[in-house]
Computed example of a mutant assay.
Amino acid sequence: MKISQRLENAISKLYTAFHTNTLHPECRMSCAVGNICDNTTTWTHLTNGHGSLQLSYIGQLNEAFGRKVFGYSPSELLQIEAVFLTACGYEIPLAFNAKKPKDPADKELLFNALCAVVEFLCKLDGVPNVMDYSKLFEFEDDRPKYELPAFA
C-alpha cells in the first residue's frame, strides 16, 4: 500500500517520540502535533486552547488561504491533537480543573493514544489503517485469505 509523504513523516516522528520518551500530552512541543511539527509551538497559534477544535483568527486565515503545516491544514492539526488528548483520557480543551489521566507518561496509555492517532491520520488520507492486522487472520476454506507481507 502506498501512503502519502505527510502520513509517512507523521508516523515516523510519532514513532521516534514514543521510543525516545519525548511524547507528552500536556507539553505543546512534545504532544502528538508538537512532534509532527518538529517539536515547535508554531501550531499553537492556530488555536486559542490546547485541545480545542476552534481555530483562532490566525488559524482561520491560514485555513482560508489553504496553507499547510507539515502537510496538514490547521483544522486537521487541531483534530489530530484532539484525538490524541481524548485517547489519553483528557477532557478537552485542556484546563486546570478538567479530567486528565493519573500518569500522562504511561507507555501503554501513550501507545493506545498513538494507535488512535494513526488510525485518524490514515482516515484523513483515505487509506486503510496501517496498524490494522485483522485481515491477516481472515480465512476461507481453512486457508489464509491474505499473505503476510515480507518485512525487510
Rank of each mutant, 00 (worst) to 15 (best):
I3C: 07
S4I: 10
S4D: 09
S4A: 07
S4P: 03
S4H: 06
R6Y: 10
L7I: 12
N9K: 00
I11M: 04
K13V: 07
Y15C: 06
A17R: 02
F18R: 00
H19Y: 14
H19T: 14
T20V: 08
N21S: 13
N21A: 10
N21V: 08
M29F: 07
S30L: 14
C31Q: 01
A32E: 13
V33Q: 01
V33C: 03
G34Y: 13
G34D: 14
N35T: 10
N35M: 04
C37L: 00
C37G: 01
N39K: 10
T40D: 11
T42Y: 09
T42R: 06
W43H: 01
T44K: 03
T44P: 05
T44H: 09
L46D: 06
T47N: 06
N48V: 01
G49E: 15
G51R: 03
G51W: 00
S52Q: 04
S52N: 07
S52A: 10
Q54T: 02
L55A: 03
S56I: 07
S56K: 07
Y57H: 09
Y57F: 05
I58H: 05
G59T: 03
G59Y: 00
Q60E: 10
L61Q: 10
L61I: 05
E63M: 04
F65H: 11
G66F: 08
G66D: 12
K68H: 09
V69T: 06
V69H: 05
F70H: 00
G71P: 11
S73H: 02
S73F: 14
P74N: 02
E76M: 09
L78F: 02
Q79F: 05
Q79L: 10
I80D: 12
V83P: 00
V83E: 04
V83F: 15
F84E: 06
L85P: 12
L85N: 00
T86N: 06
T86Q: 05
A87M: 08
C88V: 14
C88W: 12
G89D: 15
G89L: 11
Y90W: 13
E91M: 14
I92R: 01
P93I: 08
P93Y: 01
A95R: 12
A95D: 08
F96D: 15
F96P: 06
N97W: 11
A98S: 13
K99E: 11
P101T: 02
K102G: 10
K102T: 12
D103Q: 04
P104A: 03
A105G: 04
K107T: 05
E108R: 03
L110Q: 13
L110C: 08
L110Y: 02
A113T: 09
A113P: 00
A113S: 11
A113I: 08
A113N: 07
C115H: 11
C115Y: 14
V117P: 07
V117E: 04
V118T: 13
V118F: 04
E119G: 05
E119V: 12
L121D: 02
C122G: 07
C122V: 14
L124N: 07
G126W: 01
P128I: 04
N129I: 01
V130A: 03
V130W: 00
M131R: 10
S134Q: 12
S134I: 02
K135T: 09
K135D: 15
K135V: 14
L136G: 06
E138P: 06
E138D: 15
E140P: 01
E140N: 11
E140V: 09
E140A: 07
D141N: 15
D142Q: 15
D142N: 14
R143C: 03
P144K: 14
K145Y: 15
L148D: 06
L148T: 04
P149D: 05
F151T: 12
F151C: 11
